[in-house]
Amino acid sequence: MGIEATLRVLNEMQAAGVLADYAIGGAVAAFLYIEPATTLDLDIFTAWTPSPGGLLTPQPFYEYLAGRGYKNYEQEAIVVEGWAVQFLPLGNSLLEEALKEAADVKIKGVLTRVFTREHLMAICLQTGRQKDTIRLLQFIQEGSADMERFAEILQRYNLSQAWETFQTRHLKSR
């Protein structure tokens, strides 16, 4: 049992039409680009299906997984093959673009999709929690990001000012 088993289940959900296009974001995605650290869950970004009343809900994912015997939860995440999976909606246009432009990656032989490093960096900047700041600094320190592409993303999603502020606070004093 490993993350590839979890991804296999997600791909089967997709094949069954329960899950739309998805991509890995959050810590696991970031750790594929930067130095890995401890994480407890696997963030899956995908479009949530509207219920008959029009409400966007992850309920169909949980029902499908419950039908396959996955009934354990860790806070808001459901445990699938040892990994606590959190289904996150595409809450804004940056996340929608991140999903659209996600990279195809094979993890232990299982094909999946992962947000690009430039999108992950922009999401860190937009989200702005302390751990996002640290992660963004790690991306910059790692030095492999396409900074032109990153700047274009920032411009498209009105994050250029936030980037200026970030640089003043965390980079220019170095």
Partner: peptide, 26 residues
């Protein structure tokens, strides 16, 4: 040097490391 080495590991080796760190976290 360690940070650079870990950042550049091939994906499957990184996944092994992430799995170990995940178990440690749990």
């Amino acid at each position: 040097a360690r940070r650079k080495y870990l950042a550049k590991l091939p994906i499957d080796q990184k996944i092994d490391l992430i799995e170990q760190l995940h178990e440690f976290g749990k």
